[in-house]
């Protein structure tokens, strides 16, 4: 029986393409997943979140590949369902460390945005996808700017595609 947190991380992994073990390492001194789940729950409301998590759990139990799960979660109709808007905001949260309120929910107003925490900013995935580091914060050692960045796969756990491999090769 998976927990809400398990399903939230799994859903997040399907949406971002970042492996589950990277989003929520077994040994995690930072702890963004529970922080994010606690943060988004009142903002997208359980009326939207719970069906999203259930949808993910059901598809995952049926061994649907993560990219197919993402396609089903993000499938749009007109008007765009709140679940899709919420899923997009969850994606942006992981990549940018910023919460973009997708619709009005109680006192939370559509269009509001906030950096969730200093750690959310530092460990947001856009930096690693760009093979870079947050502005004002780098864990790399002195002189790293003179070295080739680590590979996309080393940084994100996601192998570069054939086309992006060629692009990466151009930089080497």
């Amino acid at each position: 029986m998976s927990t809400d947190l398990d399903n939230f991380v799994g859903l997040s992994s399907a949406l971002t393409g970042i492996p589950i073990e990277r989003l929520a390492p077994q040994l995690d001194p930072v702890g963004l997943p529970p922080l994010f789940l606690d943060y988004v729950t009142p903002r997208i409301t359980t009326d939207v979140l719970n069906p999203l998590l259930t949808q993910y759990a059901t598809l995952a139990a049926d061994h649907v590949p993560p990219d197919k799960i993402a396609q089903q979660v993000l499938v749009t109709t007109q008007p765009t369902p709140n679940s899709v808007l919420a899923a997009r905001s969850i994606m942006k949260l992981w990549f940018l460390g910023v919460w973009y309120q997708p619709y009005d929910a109680g006192s939370y107003k559509k269009g509001d945005s906030a950096v969730v925490s200093d750690q959310a900013y530092i460990y947001s995935w856009a930096w690693k996808v760009a093979q870079a580091h947050p502005m004002g914060y780098s864990e790399s050692f002195f002189g790293y700017w003179n070295e080739q960045p680590s590979s996309l796969e080393d940084l994100t756990g996601v192998p570069a595609t054939a086309s992006s491999s060629a692009q990466q090769g151009d930089r080497s």
């Binding site: 390492p25 040994l27 995690d28 001194p29 930072v30 750690q119 864990e139 790399s140 050692f141 070295e147 680590s150 590979s151 080393d154 940084l155």
Partner: peptide, 13 residues
């Protein structure tokens, strides 16, 4: 030391 994760996610932070 991994160049992709040079500090190795220290605990406590």
């Amino acid at each position: 030391i991994s160049a992709a994760n040079p500090l190795g996610n220290p605990a406590p932070s």
